[in-house]
Design a protein around this nucleic acid. Structure first.
Lengths: 226, 226
DNA sequence: TGTACATCAGTGAACGCGCGTTCACTGATGTAC
DNA sequence: TGTACATCAGTGAACGCGCGTTCACTGATGTAC
């Protein structure tokens, strides 16, 4: 599918849309998503404000496109890491590197919801791609089954509530691990990127390392807690 | 300290400042902190916009006050829970209840930083109060020492980098547990409150329960991972 | 190859809105004698 | 208790700003014969 023969005008449109996004990202990286302004982007491009409405119907449509790109970028990063033999621990560090490279991009998708903006359904599909890579990695890792009544109960629950895995064949224990990995990594990153670690005194790198070792089962114990 | 004899005017000022904050919270609960508007608050109070400048020098000063209140509210909640015999697990649930009660209040302090706003130093002092309650609780809980090279290394690191504990006498293993508890709980809450669990299919309550059991060491294993 | 027409990118003016904040002023409240 | 004065809460107008978005229009680019 897609355009068979691209006309010059079509090519130009694609190009300008990309340039708009480029400036949008620069703006987001500077002041965050809430500061994203159509007029400001136009000014930076040396063009009048209304001109951009030829390329994006509204500010919301532009934001939606940026959100999708962010999800895709993260999924691509994880896929590349996995493709080159990276294990769960490597994926964790890939996520962190991706987040630190552009904190506002991270916040755009995992931070406080942008007020008044409602994400369309297909963004959740894209966001699930990253999870899929993660589940693959956990399926390869040697893991002990969940222990404790709450852990066993939740694993049973996951058996029948695995919509988010989108058909991934992983057993409940792996789903649980993947989910836990996800929330734990986000816990660290959301606090770190929001600046809550500055002034606390410890080294975020070392803390992340220790947490990842524990949740990836690479800390020598071989019995990571789920 | 404080006013020895409060004049009627002083009492009135205190009262109006409180009313302003009340309306500010209502506004935040509705549309988030970035939508907080001095003029909108004034309108709701049936008063002109500039009138509020008698009570708060600027919008930023008002936000600062709200942030401090939020930190204090959370610390109070935790203190109350601990005072009535609540263990680590109870504290986790208390935090979650506090967060769910007003998600935007949670995001105000733990979400994406408000662009252009710089928190004054004393907010970090207040934010450390909650951590202190947590460390107390962990010190009472039976816990295995950290395992794995990364865990041991980080524990050693904490020995010399414990500014954030503000003089709390807890040993490094407890500090590590407290920090880990903190980031893990925030990982779940930040994703849950931002709506990333909706549509995933599983029950957030059960997941939280399972995670807390694992990190509190109440899942029967008695060897929670650090 | 040249002309007539359709397409469409970009412009400038405008709409209506809300924001934080300042300023000179009015009028009510409290204070001092 | 009554009067003169100081304090200060609140007003309305104004400043300067930026926002998303619409609209009628110009002028360049591409298309069809």
């Amino acid at each position: 599918m897609g355009a068979k023969t691209e006309t010059p005008r079509e090519r130009y449109r694609v190009q300008v849309r990309a340039e708009i996004k480029k400036h949008a990202w620069q703006q987001i990286a500077t002041a965050g998503a809430s500061a994203l302004s159509v007029n400001a982007i136009a000014k930076r491009m040396g063009v009048s404000g209304p001109a951009l409405y030829r390329y994006y119907a509204s500010r919301d449509e532009l934001i939606t496109e940026l959100i999708k790109d962010a999800y895709r970028s993260l999924a691509d990063t994880l896929r590349a890491t996995a493709a080159s033999g990276g294990d769960v621990s490597a994926l964790a560090h890939a996520i962190r590197r991706w987040a630190l490279a552009d904190p506002h991009r991270y916040f755009l998708i995992y931070g406080t919801p942008v007020p008044g903006y409602e994400a369309p359904d297909d963004t959740t599909v894209i966001s699930a791609e990253a999870m899929s890579v993660l589940l693959d990695a956990f399926q390869k890792a040697p893991l002990s089954p969940p222990s404790g009544t709450a852990g066993i109960r939740f694993a049973a629950h996951l058996q029948n509530h695995r919509d988010w895995a989108r058909g991934h064949p992983a057993p409940p224990a792996v789903l649980h691990r993947g989910l836990s990995f996800w929330t734990r990594v986000h816990g660290i990153l959301s606090l770190e990127l929001a600046g809550h670690f500055t002034g606390m005194g410890f080294d975020p790198d070392q803390y992340f390392e220790a947490e990842v070792a524990a949740l990836a089962g690479t800390d020598g114990t071989n019995t990571p807690s789920v």
